[in-house]
Design a protein around this nucleic acid. Structure first.
Length: 550
DNA sequence: CGGCTTTGACCAGCGC
DNA sequence: GCGCTGGTCAAAGCCG
């Protein structure tokens, strides 16, 4: 009966493999361990699955109601049936639902009657029957659980990819929306340069790139980044007074900009515009800092990183590590990882640059989030006090429903957006946001119901309970115009958010559920949060490798 | 053996 | 000019 089963009942393979496959602190090949894509079934094009997420369950429900109908609301297309058709054991309840996809001969319904008739030893009729029945009933339940587990793993996998896809789509669409909003709000300020650009570029690049995003592959990430770039530039030109643009150009001009691959696209689109090069340099300088609670030495964001340096930073006993992306030769993306001086459970990861190569699905969440955040920052706020846009307007434009998600640090030398994922979630906060505008709802063909919650804790193949300190925080969108440096600024931020009572798993789940259900604006930050959660607690003792330098 | 980490050295920017 | 600091380089060693 167990022949052909690749699953075990001891644990959820999705999550267990995630942990065991986590090779080391720095490399975590995306798509493998992060999403667990290779561990179970053949990875199909998950984006074609019109799965209703409302039918999914979390671990608790899975454990307590294994015999209940797991997918009353789950609609599997016909081409999905071979996913389960080779199973030799059928749960009685499943016969009704899967009879359309399995031949009748394959419906080996294990009932008590079947078990009785199968018994051949007549001498054990008295006491042996009951024990045999118990035994075979136990086996039957085991088979049911295995069946259940297998189906739910497949379901989990679909949802994982779906969330990643939605996250990327949302980031791109949201940036485009912000661009349009700002254009509408400030039509008189549109300068000649913008008009000239649009005249010379009658075919808007952004819609095309949004179309590109529909490809559920790494190309989507590329397109998302491109959108971030283009929207950033567009808003830089249209939403900022020209004098500020020039000021920004002069300040951010840097020789480092020559090797920035993703900007080649932008250069093609806007060839001959000197402002583009400066914007590229600005993109190089813009930073997105992610604060997350994690015991791991580095958060797992789906990319491959190589450590190229470590230094002691002023004011922090913990060393700062420097990493560069090694997923492609010449990728300009770098990141700094440092623990918070005050709360060493907080890991501060600062990203800089944009990838110039396709990203695996696991890396797209973080990449698109950081790209969007960087674009947001660069388009709306700059370090110079006289060049600042209306921060409140920007805040509402960027995060209309969740106005406390990101801290924009315009402090010198680099503009930085901090996504603070360390705060305790307040479920009420997530429930309060107004219903999202219809244009925020990413349409999924064949997906009539909104993204449902119980699946969320495993959405990246990782249960939240692995790091009960990881939280979906409210990000605080405030315009800080201090003159402190990045590190000092981050330390200041750490004081402003006293730790709250750690939420229960249920609270976290419900908060995240409400967030993603009621407020699609959380999607990007949520992806980042989940990414940070992935690494939490996996290396409990690995944070002490303080190789002090200098 | 290739890729990675470690770590001292080097460089640039900035303030005094 | 000097010192401080952040960031990077590159040689040496480690590891699978």
């Amino acid at each position: 009966m167990g022949k052909g089963w690749g699953l075990t009942l001891d644990s959820d393979p999705v999550t267990s493999n995630l942990f065991t496959n986590k090779s080391n602190s720095t490399t975590n090949v995306a798509g493998g361990s992060f999403l667990g894509l290779k561990q179970h079934h053949h990875h199909r094009d998950m984006f074609q699955f019109p799965v209703s997420l409302a039918g999914s369950r979390d671990d608790d429900r899975r454990g307590t109601s294994a015999s209940s109908s797991p997918s009353d609301d789950t609609k599997l297309p016909v081409d999905e049936v071979d996913f389960f058709s080779d199973k030799k054991v059928r749960v009685v309840d499943d016969v009704k639902k899967e009879s359309i996809e399995a031949p009748a001969s394959d419906l080996d319904v294990n009932t008590g009657l079947l078990l009785l008739t199968a018994g051949s030893d007549q001498s054990t009729v008295d006491d042996g029957v009951s024990s045999d029945m118990e035994d075979k009933r136990a086996k039957n339940e085991l088979a049911q659980l295995q069946d259940e587990l297998k189906r739910m793993n497949a379901e989990n996998q679909k949802l994982k990819d779906m969330l990643s896809h939605v996250s990327n789509n949302y980031s791109a669409l949201h940036m485009h929306l912000v661009t349009l909003m700002q254009q509408q709000q400030q039509p008189p300020q549109r300068n000649r340069e913008t008009q000239a650009i649009q005249e010379s570029k009658p075919e808007e690049a952004t819609p095309l790139q949004i179309l590109d995003l529909r490809r559920p592959s790494a190309a989507g990430a590329e397109a998302a980044e491109t959108i971030s770039h283009s929207s950033s530039e567009e808003r830089t030109r249209s939403g900022t007074p020209p004098s500020n643009v020039e000021k920004r150009v002069n300040r951010e001009e840097s020789p480092e900009s020559e090797s920035w691959g993703p900007n080649c696209k932008v250069q093609k689109l806007n060839s001959g515009k000197p402002v583009d090069q400066s914007t590229e340099a600005t993109m190089r300088k813009a930073r997105v800092s992610v604060r997350a609670r994690s015991e791991a030495p580095m958060i797992t964001d789906g990319c491959q990183w190589r450590k190229y340096g470590q230094k002691m930073a002023k004011g922090n006993p913990c060393p700062r590590a420097y990493y560069r992306c090694t997923m492609a030769v010449g990728c300009p993306v770098r990141k700094q990882v440092q623990r918070c001086a005050d709360d060493r459970t907080i890991l501060i990861t600062t990203y800089e640059g944009n990838h110039n190569h396709p990203l695996p699905p696991a890396a797209m969440a973080m990449a698109s989030t950081t790209a969007a955040a960087a674009s947001m920052l660069l388009s709306g706020s700059m370090p110079s006090a006289d060049g600042i846009m209306n921060p409140n307007l920007l805040a509402r434009a960027i995060l209309p429903c969740s106005s406390s998600m990101a801290t924009i640090s315009a402090s010198a030398p680099f503009p930085t957006v901090t996504l603070d994922l360390t705060h305790s979630p307040n479920p009420l906060q997530f429930q309060r946001p107004p219903p999202p505008p219809t244009q925020f709802q990413v349409p999924f063909p064949g997906q009539p119901t909104p993204v449902s919650s119980p699946q969320l804790p495993q959405v990246f193949g990782q249960p939240l309970y692995n790091n009960n300190q990881s939280k979906f925080s409210g990000l605080q969108l405030s315009q800080e115009m201090g003159s402190s440096q990045l590190g000092h600024h981050q330390q200041k931020q750490q004081h402003q958010a006293p730790p709250q009572q750690p939420p229960t798993l249920a609270d976290t789940v419900s908060a995240a559920t409400a967030a993603i259900t009621n407020d699609p604006n959380f999607t990007a930050a949520l992806a980042a949060a989940i990414s940070s959660i992935i690494s939490g607690g996996t290396h409990p003792n690995s944070s002490n490798n303080n190789n002090n330098r200098q």
